[in-house]
């Protein structure tokens, strides 16, 4: 390869058109394996899913799809369980991400305020993030057990409740319970990102503000929050996207029950449990559209912060 390089290549500073063209070709060569893999595992399956959503195909091999046009989507629009799953997912996402954001800011401020044991805190915060969602769900499912669970016992001792509650079975408590589990698992992630954002704010700003007589409240609203905005925007986007596709935790704790069924749980139920590949694909495409819509809205809102 080196022997065929044109002489201009060796000078480095002045790049001739031949070299530029070569570099472009090389760049695509380096990208090729990644592009091929992503087209194979993401692009093609997405195309196939959309394609199958226009058929009545069952999950039985060999596949025998019959074209039904927009029939599946007509069903989808009238399917109360689908709309319930969209609603559940949105409630789950916005309540849990909202709580996580407020708690995350509080925790980040607390850890950043320069107390001892910061390293210990950081480790303790990373652990809930690092464990499998399945493990977190099982741990909490056991703690929230209606008869033998430690949460009922603890809350009774603290006089927070009068009688044991069926946290993961009663319609009214299921959603708050799964939100609480999600908050436990992901607030630390939020706090870590915000902590990094906080630590990148120059101390001089605070000193200057103090000289000018700004109190702690003013310093928070006028300096901390605006300068934290980019980190906050990124954290919000990632967390929201994660919450919108929540599957593991709901699947383990409450399954496909109507009070907490989410879009992902519903799609998998149709696709795999009911063998309805055609309708399941329409549901999956619906999810894709809902999330694409959300991403577009978020990007429009936060474009400035992300620059």
């Amino acid at each position: 390869m080196a022997s065929t390089l044109p002489p201009t290549a060796r000078t480095g500073s002045r790049r001739g058109p031949t070299l530029a063209a070569r570099r472009v070709r090389l760049a695509w060569l380096y990208l090729l394996p990644t592009i091929v893999t992503l087209v194979a595992v993401a692009g093609y399956p997405l195309y196939r899913t959309v394609q199958l959503s226009f058929t009545d195909v069952r999950l039985r091999f060999p596949l025998a799809p019959d074209w039904v046009g927009l029939d599946q989507y007509a069903w989808l629009l009238r399917d109360p369980v689908w709309w319930r799953s969209v609603w559940n997912t949105l409630v789950f996402t916005f309540v849990s991400v909202g709580i996580e954001t407020v708690l995350g800011i509080l925790i980040a401020l607390m850890v950043a305020s320069g107390l001892r044991g910061k390293g210990l805190m950081r480790t303790a915060m990373l652990v809930p993030w690092a464990i499998p969602g399945v493990v977190a769900a099982q741990m909490w499912k056991w703690m929230l057990n209606d008869v033998y669970g430690v949460i009922n016992d603890l809350f009774m001792r603290l006089r927070l409740i009068d009688e044991p509650k069926a946290w993961l079975a009663s319609a009214a408590l299921m959603m708050p319970s799964v939100i609480a589990i999600d908050v436990w698992k992901t607030t630390p992630f939020m706090a870590l990102i915000l902590l990094a954002g906080l630590q990148s704010i120059p101390q001089e700003y605070y000193e200057a503000a103090r000289v000018d007589g700004a109190n702690a409240w003013q310093r928070f609203w006028r300096i901390t929050l605006p300068l934290l905005a980019p980190a906050l925007a990124v954290a919000l986007i990632f967390r929201t996207l994660d919450a919108l596709r929540v599957f593991d935790m709901i699947f383990i704790t409450t399954g496909a029950q109507i009070s907490t069924i989410t879009m992902s749980v519903y799609a998998r139920q149709q696709l795999v449990s009911f063998f309805d590949l055609g309708y399941g694909s329409a549901v999956a495409t619906g999810i894709f559209l809902v999330i694409a819509f959300y991403v577009a809205v978020y990007l429009a809102l936060f474009r400035k912060a992300l620059r």
């Binding site: 093609y44 399956p45 996207l241 596709r245 992902s264 799609a267 999956a284 999810i287 991403v295």
Partner: peptide, 24 residues
């Protein structure tokens, strides 16, 4: 374009390719 397409795949809801991936 390639950079943002790659980024978009990380944000992807994995459930929306489940059916196609199963077939693949």
């Amino acid at each position: 374009t390639v950079y943002y397409a790659t980024l978009a795949v990380t944000m992807f809801p994995q459930i929306s390719v489940l059916g196609g991936l199963f077939v693949l």
